[in-house]
Design a protein around this nucleic acid. Structure first.
Lengths: 161, 161
DNA sequence: ACGCTAATGCAATATTATAACATTATATTC
DNA sequence: GAATATAATGTTATAATATTGCATTAGCGT
């Protein structure tokens, strides 16, 4: 995975996310409507989790009439249901999914300084989760991990303060 | 760890939680006030995460005048700060901590059927988290894991439906 | 065009959480 | 014990997040 904090071609992230979304919707015979696209693009504007009402503000800029909250929440539900975004519940915010379609798993490192959320490869943590659940005969549906701390970039920057 | 779903002496859980809390507060020269105790007891009434407003309802029963939300939230903040409870952010709810004082880590298996939250020994998962964070040179402050699924008890029960 | 379904619009409201300031209780010092 | 400082709680209002219920519109197959 590339390091989000260093320079990267973010337009590429956005393009890829849009492409994946369109492809996934076509495969599943779902409609990638304008609102859903706008919401996804807004979320992918950065690697920082975005709140529903912040998304609403963005939609308001582009629409003639200001949309109501359900408009945003319905689009978010659609994107969540199809594994195109993740909800970071400790922040009440949403962030793009790196591997769309693989719903119900989201493991993130969240920087408390720059707010960037780095998605981890599920395989790094899931075996441990699965083993721990297995010990309790617990059947896992979804597992979300939210690690808060300082990303490499911000740690480095703070050394030079 | 005992299995919460089977019969267990829950009064023992409550007593132990209260005892630990008093001890910890004494050690740290903190005040374990009546409100804080009431909130902790309400949370420990079960192993199910409880919402702030549900706690408020409980306090209302015992008080002459109905307390306002900040009363509850301040007590919750105190208990969180001192590692006596955990916040389950995916549920906006609070649950007792098995090992008070070790703040900032909460790894839970949450049953979608009976709502019981089983706290995992941090050592089961933390090494994997630490390794994954290390790969990204990310410095971890807190790590919360919320696994949703079916506990052994409910899986068993459902086989007999 | 007709009827069906999914998507969106819209108004109201529910739920969760905090800000700001007043008051009371507790502890400490003199 | 009175004076003072600090922490805790009371109180009012409001912010922030999310949902319900119903009306309307858009797209699709016939």
């Amino acid at each position: 995975m590339h390091n989000i904090n260093t320079q990267h071609d973010h337009q590429h992230c956005i393009d890829e996310a849009l492409h994946s979304a369109r492809e996934l919707c076509q495969q599943r015979q779902l409609k990638f409507t304008k609102i859903r696209e706008q919401v996804l693009v807004t979320i992918w504007a950065s690697h920082k989790p975005v709140g529903a009402y912040a998304i609403l503000e963005e939609l308001a800029k582009e629409a003639l009439r200001r949309p109501a909250p359900p408009t945003v929440y319905r689009a978010l539900d659609f994107l969540l249901d199809n594994g195109l975004i993740h909800r970071i519940s400790s922040l009440n915010a949403f962030v793009g999914c790196n591997e769309p379609g693989h719903t119900h798993q989201g493991h993130f490192l969240i920087c408390r300084h720059c707010q960037v959320a780095i998605e981890l490869d599920t395989q790094l943590i899931y075996p441990a989760i699965s083993a721990a659940a297995g010990q309790q005969s617990f059947v896992v549906d979804t597992a979300s991990l939210e690690v808060v701390g300082s990303c490499a970039h911000c740690v480095e920057a703070r050394h030079h303060v």
